[in-house]
């Protein structure tokens, strides 16, 4: 049962994996391959999507009322959830530990540079992933509110784009600063209303569908975040 049956190859194997038909050893071996092989992940996602339609017509059932309270309570005691502050911590937690199959833990480094004294306030933030695969530099240009964003290394997943977000200290949520050009410099004019929040805020990038998040909030994975430094 464990030996590969090559007649149909990975396409059938991926279906068996999704259906949970593989025995324990084959299941584990397949999961190990998933971490390394994007085409295999695509096959799995494809089967998941197709097979999930089988559940469409299963009748709804109302769960007992006490369950709602129990579920919400579990989440309310999540230390990452408690407050705006917690919301912020949650972001860091995701930057550190989130992502598909927990594949790559991403961290960031904030580099402080010498203060530039000849002109008004100016800002910078550096976002670098732990494995160095993603690295972004954000700098004030001619004026403090004209940000130049350079993706120094890394690129979004296929068919996705990087979107830059400002998370101001007292804001209800992230505000989009725009979609980034992954292969060159992107100039971003920070709206005046957001400028006050920039000084003490955090910048983050998520991967989003082309054209950016359709919802106005990040829908993809937060890949890196960095605190804005006033220089």
């Amino acid at each position: 049962m464990t030996g590969p049956d090559d007649t149909y190859g990975d396409k059938a194997l991926a279906a068996e994996y999704v259906l949970r038909l593989l025995d324990q050893d084959a299941h584990r071996a397949f999961e190990a391959r998933l971490l390394e092989e994007p085409e295999l992940r695509a096959l799995v996602l494809d089967w998941e999507q197709q097979l999930a339609t089988l559940a469409e017509d299963i009748a709804e059932e109302t769960p007992p009322a006490h369950l709602r309270g129990a579920v919400l309570k579990t989440v309310a005691t999540d230390p990452a959830a408690a407050s705006r502050r917690g919301w912020f911590t949650g972001l860091w937690a995701r930057v550190l530990g989130g992502g598909l199959l927990a594949a790559v833990a991403i961290t960031l480094a904030v580099v402080v540079v010498d203060r530039r004294e000849e002109q008004g306030p100016s800002y910078r933030a550096d976002l670098i992933s732990a494995d160095q695969s993603i690295s972004l530099m954000v700098r004030s240009g001619e004026t403090a509110d004209a940000l130049q964003v350079e993706v120094a290394a890394g690129s979004p997943p296929d068919g996705r784009v990087f979107e830059l977000w400002l998370i101001a200290e007292n804001a209800a949520g992230p505000v989009s600063l725009g979609v980034l050009n992954a292969s060159a410099l992107t100039s971003i004019q920070v709206p005046e209303a957001l400028l006050a929040g920039l000084a003490t805020g955090t910048l983050a990038i998520s991967d989003e569908p082309p054209g950016g998040s359709p919802t106005g909030s990040p829908t993809g994975t937060v890949l890196a975040a960095g605190q804005v430094q006033k220089i």
Binding site: L45, E48, Q49, A52, R94, G98, G99, L100, P157, S206, D207, E208, T219, G220, T221, V222
Partner: peptide, 12 residues
């Protein structure tokens, strides 16, 4: 946070 990476519809 990893939902969008899957490319699935939310119900899927």
């Amino acid at each position: 946070d990893s939902y969008a990476v899957t490319g699935h519809s939310p119900m899927t």
